[in-house]
């Protein structure tokens, strides 16, 4: 993040901590894409992705008083999203499976999906999402932050609560598992 953007972000964070909703809106616009991608690759329902994305920023607003400015704001958002996705997966587990949710969600959708929904439903994305479900939550977060947002190990370490050296090993193992899951799909495709 450029220095100017980082300086602006610190200002907005401070203003948001003082109750400035507009400053928080700027933080939202700066990081919503990354959070959306992070969730979209792990949640099979478009509507569900939107709900969770909104919930991540809502919880960030509620807890922004406790945010420590020395940490990257995006990583703090990732941590919130990480916990939300895990809890959501547990709830989905109780409701049998994500697939049922997806079917139900699709049934409720318009018969003519939006371009975004079309993208969301693209086969390679679906395959990647399905392969990601075989990874642990930490592995999913690690790969998402590494290859979606270009985060370093040092950035990811506080989000996952692990040492940077351990993350290198974890990334290697996660990519190996992901490649193993994607190989037969590619063959079939």
């Amino acid at each position: 993040m450029p220095d100017t953007a980082a300086a602006n972000e610190r200002i907005w964070i401070r203003q948001a901590q003082q109750g400035d909703a507009e400053a928080f809106a700027r933080l939202y616009e700066q990081h919503v894409d990354a959070i959306y991608r992070y969730i979209a690759l792990r949640v099979p329902s478009q509507q569900h992705v939107e709900d969770l994305t909104e919930e991540v920023f809502w919880r960030a607003w509620q807890a922004i008083d406790r945010f420590r400015p020395e940490r990257p704001f995006l990583h703090w958002l990732y941590r919130i999203a990480h916990n939300l996705v895990i809890n959501d997966a547990r709830r989905a587990e109780k409701h049998r499976s994500y697939e049922m949710m997806t079917d139900m969600g699709h049934a409720l959708m318009d018969e003519t999906p939006s371009p975004e929904e079309n993208l969301f439903r693209q086969e390679d994305i679906q395959q990647l999402r399905q392969a990601m479900t075989t990874l642990s939550p930490d592995e999913q977060t690690l790969l998402t932050m590494r290859f979606f947002d270009g985060a370093s190990y040092d950035d990811i370490a506080p989000v996952l609560g692990k040492r940077p050296g351990a993350l290198r090993v974890l990334q290697h193992r996660a990519l190996k598992k992901l490649a193993k899951q994607l190989a037969p799909m590619r063959t079939v495709a």
């Binding site: 959306y36 690759l41 939107e50 920023f57 969301f120 693209q122 790969l143 290859f147 490649a179």
Partner: peptide, 24 residues
């Protein structure tokens, strides 16, 4: 190849402006 697909998906998985306005 898996990492490349992941990286490519990240580029394409972007919310449309209407979604961002709605959530905002």
């Amino acid at each position: 190849q898996a990492a490349a697909r992941l990286h490519d998906a990240g580029k394409r998985l972007a919310p449309d402006p209407a979604f961002k306005r709605r959530v905002r």
